[in-house]
Design a protein around this nucleic acid. Structure first.
Lengths: 196, 196
DNA sequence: TATGACTGTCAGTAGTGACTGTCATTTTGT
DNA sequence: ACAAAATGACAGTCACTACTGACAGTCATA
């Protein structure tokens, strides 16, 4: 091993479970498959987690990254529209990519496993608030035109949400475009639309 | 019955299958459940379709709406940017909503049932081509600024894709906003960003 | 009335998957 | 090196599920 970080068997199984379930879906993955893929025996799985359900819930709680952002975020906003939209967009994609497997699970099993969807929507909602408020403040400073700020913020978030989902699967709908180039263009578009 | 259109038992089961599978996922729905929900016996299901797999595939082929649009579409474009973007956006959402259950199935079972995803991505790709070409032509006429037209078209499509997916589930991420208002605002944004 | 297409009931099969118990073996902490 | 904890191998239980077979009922049509 290059890095001598030891990963416990428990975490091995949790990570494997997230991997497989995000790919195939909860029902399609067997406890047998999870265990052997993790290089362990099925028995060990049940010794640790008791049930398949509990395995998934534990995995979700343990590996759902939920960092605080409010405090640091406001300070980083410069007042330059394009710069700030770029920061917000990149932050969004960074957070979403950290949680990409969890989000995939939440989308697939959202109906059957209630509560999952909400947790994954936590960050987007937070960013939406920040962005809406940001638009309001920028308008007060006379730096952007007057519109429905929340709707505008939602449009921006939706666009990034669509782009994120498109990048989730291996076979993408529009594979010709990289995410970075998309972010750049879309931010420019919004900046141009909002400057007075 | 108000309308005397008789729906065959075969179609009853196909529609029920689409309904249930789009909600719960393929693996979570039993043939028993499909049959009784359709008001028929499980035996009849197998007499018609032979297997659960075949039932789903038949359902997908039979009820995946794939209208032609190229011909009529170009003629409807007026040359007024905002009007045309509105038409494209509404067309997109109309088609996506017709196929919403199919798209849900494709998203959930996309990895396990290959070929489904591609079919649902057929329309978005077509609209993307039309929109990209439209931008090029509008630029030639001097009606919009010069940008990367494909990237611009993708941004627009992504935004609508995100909005569509957000409206898919009963519990939406941003429930305060109706789809129509979103479409209106987003179209205005893009129109403003692109006019010289 | 008789035939055929369609359907329901019921009993049953074969396979699978979550989960348990037992005992031997390995790994770990001290 | 030794005891404790963790793991594996294996066999087995129980419920569920896709799918089949045998038989009977309904209904339209010739």
């Amino acid at each position: 091993m290059p890095s001598s970080i030891k990963i416990s068997n428990k975490d091995k199984m949790l990570l494997t479970a997230i991997d497989l379930i995000s790919q195939k879906g909860y029902k399609s993955v067997t406890t047998q498959e999870i265990a052997t893929t993790a290089g362990l025996s099925e028995k060990t799985l049940f010794r640790h987690f008791g049930s398949k359900q509990n395995l998934l819930e534990t995995a979700f709680d343990r590996f759902h990254y939920s960092e605080e952002m409010e405090d640091t975020f406001h300070k980083k906003l410069t007042g330059d529209l394009e710069t700030d939209l770029l920061l917000i967009s990149k932050t969004y994609h960074r957070i979403m990519n950290q949680n990409r497997k969890m989000i995939m699970i939440a989308i697939k099993e959202g109906n059957t496993l209630p509560g999952f969807l909400e947790k994954t929507q936590q960050h987007p909602r937070q960013l939406l608030k920040i962005l809406t408020l940001y638009f309001k403040n920028m308008h007060k400073k006379g730096k952007i035109i007057h519109t429905d700020f929340e709707l505008q913020a939602i449009s921006f978030m939706m666009m990034n949400f669509g782009a994120f989902l498109n990048n989730l699967d291996a076979d993408k709908s529009f594979p010709t475009v990289t995410l970075d180039k998309f972010i750049q263009t879309s931010v420019q578009t919004f900046a141009r639309a909002l400057t007075p």
